[in-house]
Design a binder for these strands. Structure first.
Lengths: 189, 189, 189, 189
DNA sequence: TATGAATGAGGCTTCATTCAT
DNA sequence: GATGAATGAAGCCTCATTCAT
């Protein structure tokens, strides 16, 4: 049902997990252009081992992005359920944070390197569905303008991730984030 | 005072200008990863000529960014003077547009590839001074929150450029830009 | 006497036979450059199993060629005995056909990849002996020139296999084969 | 009209010629699978230089084959004109010789590595035209069977080249070639 | 013994930079 | 000064062979 027809051998599973982990960190730190050899080196395996688990560099990158998106969707949905009114704001902050430490995810969201919606249509679809839910909750709660849709929120995420990457955390939170929040609030007229 | 001790020969000056112009267009269209050979080809010169004027690819990129920033500073200052209240908003839109068509400038602003403030301290300083002016005008005119500074505006520019690159123009203008504008406005309380 | 000092365990023997069979088919279909992994996959065994029975890829290839030559020798000798006059012609056609469907054997005969006489002196010797017999039969029957020897026939086989690989069967048979046959016939003077 | 819009610089022309020459020899000796790096090494240039003149390995191989075919066509046509009756026989011998020393050409003719008719349709067409001419001359002179066409001759060339590669020259000439010649002659009845 | 995962050398190709012309 | 050819270090990927399980 998922990705493995039969469980991997213990050593292979360990290596695969290690490659994924290291690749995640490395893409996050260095961006999508980091050489596969560098990932292999950091993981302490040969380049061939990386290619055994992921047939191309792009497939490795996609696997990481897909994994990360799955986590994001799950966690965000759960968190937003706890506080519908604040859920969208918390989600935006979290996505911005994610982008700060994860160059790969930021690139994926911004469409740098590969087209998310085309390469991982399911992941993209799930993500957008989740965004739509959280947004609708907030709109029902009256904390966010009713004239925005999920695509607008994704656009804002792209912008926030870029800002977050540009500026240290504390600063963004204290100085720019209130602007976004005020802009999203329902205009009182 | 600048980089050349004696004036260039006429043909050299012409070549240098041509390389700059073509490099600007090419970096804007193709991104920072375009080969130098492609720039040379489009400029109708040999690769050696590019390297005569710019010792490395990075130095060419920086020269272009510096040039562009100078233009931006001049034009924006003039435009903002005409309408202090709206000046900042117009400036933000313009910068976002610039980023849409100019991959290189966007990268430079976002600090991708090289550190603007470190590589081109003068250009950066001038730019920030101009931003501070326009912002102060708007704040005096009462159209923008008083608790924002020039660095915040630059952060917003980085975000807007990322959003602009992500999403087609009309959409950004119609859907997301009002959010930013509302967020920047003076809270009415 | 042969290569194994003690008989293989039943399962090992089964595996060895299976690898040989699959390798023969695979080399025949895909050529000598097919990866060992592909052969292992088709045989339903691990690559390690292939290497347990054959220490190198080349040794596997040689084993296949030796096996095939043994078959050829047996079958051809029997067939030629049935009709001495036509035996050589039938043999040549058969070898050409063999080469058409068996890229590996063709290469082995032509000396591509490895030197048959050096690598498998016994197989080569047996084969040449059989060719000499068949040829002598035909010469005694008066259907083939007396001035040809077994080496000449092998040369012709190499040529026929190349032609057969180059051209579809029916065509070779109808158009070129008569030329060879006429050339081999005893000149009528 | 031909391949160069403007003459190459002297050094480039020298290098290009050197690469072609070395590539020809190397492909001839080692076959089409020889690494580009090996050709570069033998030519005393960097791999990049080879790629400047020939964008892919295949293009280099094709250039060599095309060049060789052009030579063959010219020379063969001229030679055959001198003696129509013997022309085809001389041509076959020459092609076999060519194939002996030129693995690349043999491979090209036999369709190994790439499809001659597809990759170099003009060269193939010219070649076949030339073969048809020489064959027709011989047939008119009464020295070759009338029921053969150019495709049959090409098939024979493929076979002769394989035989020639398999067996040393003198031997082929003295022992096997008479068979082919006798087979091609007009049956006397 | 069988498995198939891991290794790493090597093949093709690109491109920033240098250098002969 | 200008040219564009040459260089060679990477980068991606494959596959024969070895080795842990």
């Amino acid at each position: 049902m998922t990705e493995n027809s039969r469980p991997l051998r213990a050593d292979a599973a360990r290596n695969r997990a290690r490659v994924l982990k290291v690749a995640y960190e490395t893409f996050a730190e260095e961006g999508a252009t980091v050489p596969i050899d560098e990932i292999a080196r950091r993981a302490g395996v040969g380049a061939g081992t990386v290619y055994r688990h992921f047939p191309t560099k792009e497939s490795l990158f996609q696997a990481i992005v897909a994994d990360r998106m799955r986590q994001v969707v799950e966690r965000s949905r759960a968190q937003a359920a706890a506080d519908p009114g604040e859920g969208l704001y918390a989600f935006l902050i979290q996505m911005a944070e994610q982008g700060a430490s994860d160059l790969g995810l930021t690139d994926a969201f911004a469409g740098v390197g590969f087209d998310l919606a085309e390469a991982l249509p399911d992941a993209e679809h799930e993500f957008m569905g989740m965004v739509a839910e959280i947004l609708a909750q907030a709109q029902r709660a009256g904390t966010v303008r009713p004239d925005l849709d999920a695509a607008d929120i994704k656009t804002l995420i792209v912008g926030l991730q870029a800002m977050r990457r540009f500026r240290g955390d504390g600063e963004l939170m204290r100085r720019v984030y209130p602007v976004i929040r005020a802009g999203l609030a329902v205009p009182n007229s």
